[in-house]
Design a protein around this nucleic acid. Structure first.
Length: 868
RNA sequence: GGAUCCAUAGCUCAGUUGGUAGAGCACUUCCCUUACAAGGAAGGGGUCGUCGGUUCGAGCCCGGCUGGAUCCACCA
């Protein structure tokens, strides 16, 4: 056998620089490239969440993406061709908002395209520069490209094993094509439809928003007691928090059984300011004990108004425009036009103040307004309350109005494997609680255009005919610049001609198709058949109602199946006060800082300690623990590899002949089984804990115990002499070296999914190929029929000896005169097999006395007096 | 108002089918030891939120309560 005299490990191994070194090598060697195997069974495919590039990544992202990567690396080592794409969600409103703030511009679709346009070097905070739609879109593309590079750099530093060749972005031409194609399919099957209906409307962004994007916030307001008047002049008091909506009043409504209003039903009353005469109607959802018991119904103040409007067939009296201001023209139902003109063009807030003072001056406000705190609907990214506006919008059916479909989607939720299992409740709650279909149209610019045109009638009005759709092969289309089939360009927006649908789809309408985008739907049939339905859908738990659900809706319509087999859910990283981290609160931790300080392996270790679905508070001291593990891996590896004249090619399972060495390998095999089982059920934390527990005991007890033997010192062996051959080593030495080496080889691979950098560094000290492409350790490699309790007994004895020395405040090197061990015969038998090692590590110079007995195990240490 | 999760050492969390309470961090003491000072060894520390039930036996099973997190509904 050839002897390598050069040490394999460097003298002072360090963690610094490993991220750069290995991320570059992995890129160059295409370590994580997806290579198409013959069959679907050999593939593990992951529907990676595409991060929103307009935001910034915080530690929460780093944690949850690590959770996915750990699984991906495990599956890769199990021999799967791992399909692990990355996507950028750069489409939609968040990007528009970022571009507006970054460059100080806003999109004005009426302006012509300026090919020479250059973005202002410095944004004017007071005045946004209006620019053309295409100029605006170009800026969106420019800025997202920069942001995406930053994101990619971070993911590479973190060591995500994604295949960067599978990168997609939600605003790419291909994403637009797929979004439009899926939409046209939905349209042709009547799963998508256009409806004129009241929708939640954000006045800042001037767009409709979907139910899933709405959140309730506390919002202060006042109850105003306002007098309407009967025909005989008698007042009827209502209470309202929105007095400005008096201009939109359609009816007063009370409960049919309310005795106070029986004589009013069927009569009419007049509002105190504008001369609007409205009927008094009965409806069972009016509550007698709320406010005055009689409510004014306006179009629209809240969802109850919408219900009354629909069920009582009330007129639509919209006054607030899409910009959140009162319309300039006096609506035709208003009698007192002069008074209305005081409100025209005003914002809701200003109008409210004005109406209140008008009411007060006219004596129609009873008492002072009473302050109240209410829950008001907001767009999650907005900061003004949503208005309800009736408008034409596109919807995709989601079971919110259809029990059969709802049932179908609930069944899909049960069919899906959830990790952790209880997350399925959140899905069910959401689907059960849906009260309308999914609104996908947005009155915005940077997004997927609806691939639609409409016929214009002879008056130039949009006709009721079905929309004009493009040929599927012509996708993607931009209906604003491309001409509807069967028309010529000069017929655009002309009577008898056509007009484009000017809306874009919401981001979710595209991201609901990430399995289709990533897996090559209608583009690459071979890839599609190899990767879809996908295996794993990772995400954080805030996104169950949106992304998880919407992908299930789309796959259900398009493929009649689940988009993936398993959904894994990560918890949040919270700040030390347990608050959710968010950029707006200013409590988000910037990940690059922490990665640079502790190293990626350390941060990944901490991430993997957070179990699926569990939130964890951010605690920087935990990062040190991960770093210590990484350092320990370096140093323990160095010890094993740099034993004099040791070389991995010498390590033979058949050489492991000493009982304690066999016991250690048998214990390790149990750990491998446990870690493997844990990974199979996505419980990466359990795998890590089992591995780590073994590893620390391996270092603290086993290595300490056999170190002297492995060096050959204790046996007076000549192994340290240069020129000694492997065959000349005593069997006890070879046993220790082989056991150490084989255990190290397995341990490195057990840690590889968690700490990819340090394990790769060590692995490559003597391998040419990546550890991440090596096989996951199997107990077969270290197959050992041995008694695990020997190692356990030896660890116990070691701890006892060290304890005695520590109690007497002695060095661990202090010599021991003798020890006496009392205990059951099995324990004694186990320990006797490791007596020589125990003597060496404990510096026992005198006799070891064994006493078999039934009493509890005890170890007495008699220290040499000269030790003091 | 409905739902889900949670309450175990100062902190963060484990605790399998019920059988004498565990780990890491922090703390105390000791050790500059030939892999490791961003180290090592040893040690102290808990009425398992609360009340009741089942059981020979409950951190674990059942019910009530309190406190917390999250989601949904309601909000004239």
């Amino acid at each position: 056998m050839t002897i390598s005299t050069a040490p394999i490990a460097p003298d002072k191994p360090v963690l610094e620089g490993l991220e750069d070194k290995w991320s570059q090598r992995w890129a160059a060697e295409e370590t994580y490239a997806f290579r198409r195997p013959a069959s679907r069974e050999q593939v593990f495919s992951i529907d990676t969440p595409p991060p929103t590039v307009s935001g910034s990544l915080h530690v929460g992202h780093v944690f949850s993406y690590t959770h996915t990567d750990v699984i991906a690396r495990y599956k890769r080592m199990r021999g799967y061709a791992v399909f692990y794409p990355m996507g950028w969600d750069d489409n939609g409103l968040p990007t528009e908002r970022r571009v507006q703030n970054f460059y100080g511009v806003r999109c004005d679709p009426t302006l012509p395209y300026d090919p020479d346009f250059v973005a202002p070097a410095k944004p004017d905070p007071k005045r946004q520069l209006p620019i053309a739609r295409m100029n605006f879109i170009e800026l969106c593309q420019q800025l997202t490209a920069v942001d995406e590079q930053t994101f990619e750099d971070l993911w590479r530093q973190l060591g995500l094993s994604v295949d960067w060749r599978q990168l997609y972005s939600t605003i790419s031409q291909e994403s637009i094509r797929i979004s439009q194609l899926a939409f046209l399919h939905n349209l042709s099957r009547d799963e998508a439809y256009l409806d004129y209906a009241p929708t939640m409307w954000d006045v800042t962004f001037q767009t409709a928003v979907a139910q899933a994007e709405i959140e309730d916030r506390d919002y202060p307001g006042f109850y105003h007691r306002v007098a309407f008047h009967r025909g005989d002049g008698q007042p009827v008091y209502i209470e309202t928090t929105r007095p400005e909506l008096l201009v939109s009043v359609c009816a007063l409504i009370a409960h049919p059984d309310d005795p106070r209003y029986q004589d009013l039903f069927g009569s009419t009353v007049t509002d105190p300011l504008f001369g609007i005469t409205v009927p008094v109607l009965a409806h069972r959802s009016a509550e007698m004990d709320k406010g005055a018991g009689i409510a004014m119904c306006c179009t629209f103040g809240d969802k109850t108004d919408v219900q009354w409007w629909r069920e009582l067939s009330l007129p639509t009296r919209t006054v607030i425009g899409r910009d959140g201001r009162f319309s300039k023209d006096t609506p035709d139902w208003i009698v007192n036009a002069e008074r209305y003109q005081q409100l025209a063009g005003k914002t809701v807030f200003t109008a409210r103040e004005l109406v209140v003072s008008l009411l007060r001056d006219s004596g129609n406000l009873d008492g002072d307004p009473k302050p109240t705190m209410r829950q008001v609907a907001f767009y999650e990214k907005g900061d003004k309350p949503l208005e309800i506006v009736a408008s034409n919008q596109w919807y995709i059916r989601n079971g919110g109005k259809d029990e059969t479909l709802r049932r179908q989607l609930l069944d899909r939720g049960q069919e899906l494997a959830w990790v952790p299992a209880h997350m399925e409740h959140r899905y069910e709650d959401w689907v059960r609680g849906l009260n309308g279909d999914w609104l996908i149209s947005r009155q915005r610019f940077f997004g997927v255009p609806f691939p639609l045109w409409y016929h214009l009638d002879q008056e130039g009005q949009i006709s009721d005919q079905a929309p004009i759709t493009p040929d599927e092969d012509s996708l993607p289309v931009d209906p604003m610049t491309q001409v509807a089939p069967g028309f010529s360009a000069d017929q655009r927006d002309q009577p008898g001609g056509f007009t484009a649908d000017k809306d874009v789809m919401d981001t979710w309408a595209t991201s609901s198709l990430t399995p289709q985008l990533a897996c090559g739907w209608t583009r690459d049939p071979q890839l599609w058949s190899l990767t879809f339905p996908m295996d794993m859908a990772p995400q954080a738990h805030d996104i169950i109602r949106t992304w998880v659900f919407s992908r299930m809706v789309r796959a259900n319509f398009e493929e009649h199946c689940l988009p993936w087999q398993t959904a894994t859910v990560s918890g949040f990283v919270r700040d030390p006060d347990r608050k959710k981290m968010s950029k707006s609160k200013g409590n988000a931790i910037v990940p690059t800082d922490i990665l640079n300080r502790y190293g990626s392996d350390a941060v990944r270790w901490r991430a993997a300690m957070a179990r699926p679905g569990t939130d964890s508070p951010f605690d920087e001291t935990q990062m040190k623990v991960g770093r210590r593990l990484a350092m320990k891996l370096l140093n323990a590896s160095k010890l094993v590899l740099n034993l004099p004249n040791n070389h991995p090619s010498h390590w033979q399972l058949s050489d492991v002949t000493v009982a304690v060495d066999q016991s250690m390998l048998a214990t390790l095999n149990g750990v491998i089984d446990l870690a493997t089982a844990a990974f199979e059920s996505y419980q990466y934390t359990d795998a890590l804990e089992a591995t780590e527990r073994f590893f620390w005991s391996f270092c603290d007890d086993y290595i300490e115990l056999v170190k002297e033997r492995a060096y050959g010192h204790q046996l007076g062996d000549d192994t340290i002499n240069p020129g000694a051959t492997d065959a000349s080593l005593r069997p006890e030495v070879r046993s220790a070296r082989s056991a150490l080496g084989l255990a190290l080889t397995s341990l490195l691979r057990l840690f590889a999914p968690f700490c990819p950098f340090v394990t790769e560094e060590v692995w490559r000290w003597w391998h040419t190929d990546s550890i991440h492409l090596s096989a996951w350790p199997s107990p077969d490699e270290t197959n050992m029929e041995a008694d695990e309790s020997i190692l356990e007994a030896v660890s116990w004895a070691l701890t006892a000896i060290r304890g005695s020395k520590s109690q007497l405040k002695l060095s661990m090197k202090a010599p021991v005169e003798s020890i006496a061990v009392t205990g059951p015969s099995e324990l004694i038998a186990a320990l006797r097999q490791a007596e020589a090692d125990l003597r060496a590590v404990g510096q026992i110079i005198g006799p070891v006395i064994w006493v078999e007995g039934s009493q509890p195990a005890k170890l007495q240490v008699h220290l040499a007096t000269s030790a003091n």
